[in-house]
Amino acid sequence: MLPQKKILVVDDDPEMRLALSVRLRANNYDVCVAVDGVSAIAEARKHMPNLILLDLGLPAGDGFTVLERLHSMEAVAHIPVIVVSGRNRLANQERVLLAQAKAFLQKPVKNSQLLAAIEKVLGPNTVPNSERAATIYDLGQRETTTV
């Protein structure tokens, strides 16, 4: 069994942090969290995650600042980032991709969509309960990722 891949979830909304943590852990990911821009950098340096799920609207430095800081620091510059935000895709997607994020996912993100995006970055994840964890009902998906 391969070691679990670690994902840092950065979101100021505790419900969002909780929901993502539950979902990711259920899919055999190791999850750590941060609540604002400053702690996001600190947690990234501390845990050296395989991937960061980053919200844009954050206290103490928004998502763009975090992206900039991460890429300016050699130790964490390589960590891929997927932005998960409630902000308008139109207004932010391009800017996010320019800031070297891997993808822009707009909330609410379908579970299948989220996991697909993560796997696209981290590669296939062998999860025992992956069958069960897959989204049962995923109708109405209207957003696609652009990577």
């Binding site: 909304d13 979902r23 259920a26 409630g86 609410p108 049962i136």
Partner: peptide, 18 residues
Amino acid sequence: RSPLTSIYSFTSIIADDL
């Protein structure tokens, strides 16, 4: 979107028996 996201996330967590 935010509350809807929350509803979706936790409902799907329950539905997925997580």
